[in-house]
């Protein structure tokens, strides 16, 4: 198995006035390719912070992060942007689609930044829209889609360019249980089909039940890390 993510002695300390807040303490984590990992824990346990560190959206106070063999913690802004563009897909709690772009354009945006041709982009985005069950809705803007549909578009956008890693931060938080179930099934299917690694932060038991590996955090420390299925 290839290691996609590796964190060693990872620490994140926020300074709040004169008080130091330890958001992450001595995190050691390894995630293999094609895995579906769930980071769980109560609010403030450090799930989102860990995801942000892995995705290069925030920098650690100390420690080492490797994504697909590259040292994320030593990259500059531009290198981080390149890494995210080519290797990491993101799914956020609040869908985070660009409101002035249609569903198809939201999906094609990343491919456009990567320099793919218009024809290729169109072909791929239509195929992935079909895969996520949004065929016929490609020209709708986010405001014309339901929450579940928007999150499907976000997932499609995250995996369309076949990244090695998808980071999803509370992806089902704003969805009802039926939509959440559908989305999780979709993510698992896509992960298996495209050999994509998923790291999902959540405190939703439904999401945890879908995960192959469960990593529990509490007060910024990993307190459990085990395979489920």
């Amino acid at each position: 198995m290839t290691t996609v993510v590796s964190c060693k002695q990872l620490n994140k300390i926020y300074q709040q006035g004169s008080i130091e807040v330890h958001a992450l303490t001595d995190i050691n984590l390894t995630v293999e390719a094609g895995d579906f990992v769930c980071l769980s824990g109560p609010s403030g346990s450090g799930k989102s912070t860990l995801l942000n560190m892995i995705g290069g959206l925030d920098s650690p106070s100390s420690g080492e992060i490797m994504v697909d063999g590259q040292r994320v913690d030593q990259m500059n802004k531009s290198e981080l942007a390149e890494l995210r563009l080519h290797k990491i897909g993101f799914v956020f709690q609040a869908y985070n689609l660009i409101p002035v772009l249609t569903a198809r354009e939201n999906i094609e945006m990343v491919m456009q930044m990567q320099g793919d041709s218009k024809q290729y982009r169109h072909q791929l985005s239509m195929a992935i829209l079909k895969e996520v069950g949004l065929e016929g809705l490609e020209n709708r803007r986010p405001s014309e889609l339901s929450g579940g549909q928007q999150q499907r578009v976000a997932v499609a956008r995250a995996i369309v360019d076949k990244p090695c890693l998808v980071l999803a931060d509370e992806p089902t938080a704003n969805l009802d249980s039926a939509n959440a179930e559908n989305l999780l099934q979709l993510m698992r299917d896509m992960g298996e089909e495209h050999q994509t690694t998923f790291i999902v932060s959540t405190h939703d038991p439904l999401v945890m039940s879908h995960a192959r590996r469960l990593v529990k955090l509490h007060d910024g420390k990993i307190i459990e890390n085990h395979e489920q299925h």
Binding site: L85, H86, F92
Partner: peptide, 14 residues
């Protein structure tokens, strides 16, 4: 602001 954060997350350079 959130959109700009999203663009950066998706790999758009500053």
């Amino acid at each position: 602001t959130r959109e700009f954060g999203l663009f950066q997350s998706l790999g758009m350079k500053p």
